[in-house]
Amino acid sequence: MAFDDLYQEIILDHAKHPRNKENLDFISDDEVHENPTCGDSVKLAVDFSQDGKLERVRFDGDGCAISTSSASMMTEIVEGKSKEEVLKMIKSFILIMRNESESSLDDFGDLIALEGVIKYPLRVKCATLPWHALEDLLA
């Protein structure tokens, strides 16, 4: 059933208990990424290690189960990776979610749970919102 594909257990778990979600009130509202069609928002804080890798990514915001779980899983998978690696991942993730890529989410760990979203074009933006935010922050 597509609906259960959309809301797999791992998505509900990350939505209910998001990892690396913290109050980031110190970041100005101008830095918030919003989905203009629904009002969902996300902001990110990235700590870099001395060798320039992403040591820790934290997020804050208000979103549905899809965007919250996507943000939560994203903060986990990018940890310890270089900026270049992460930018490549972001591009690839966004294309896969838009169904514009031959690749799958096989290399994206738990994020493979988001593959069910591809069938719901209106929800793809929910899944990609935090990734667009990270791309803008790193670019």
């Binding site: 609906f3 809301y7 939505a15 549905c64 189960a65 899809i66």
Partner: peptide, 13 residues
């Protein structure tokens, strides 16, 4: 307990 999008998606089912 749930976001309005998830509510709307559930109802759509």
């Amino acid at each position: 307990d749930l976001h309005p999008h998830d509510m709307a998606q559930f109802l759509d089912r």
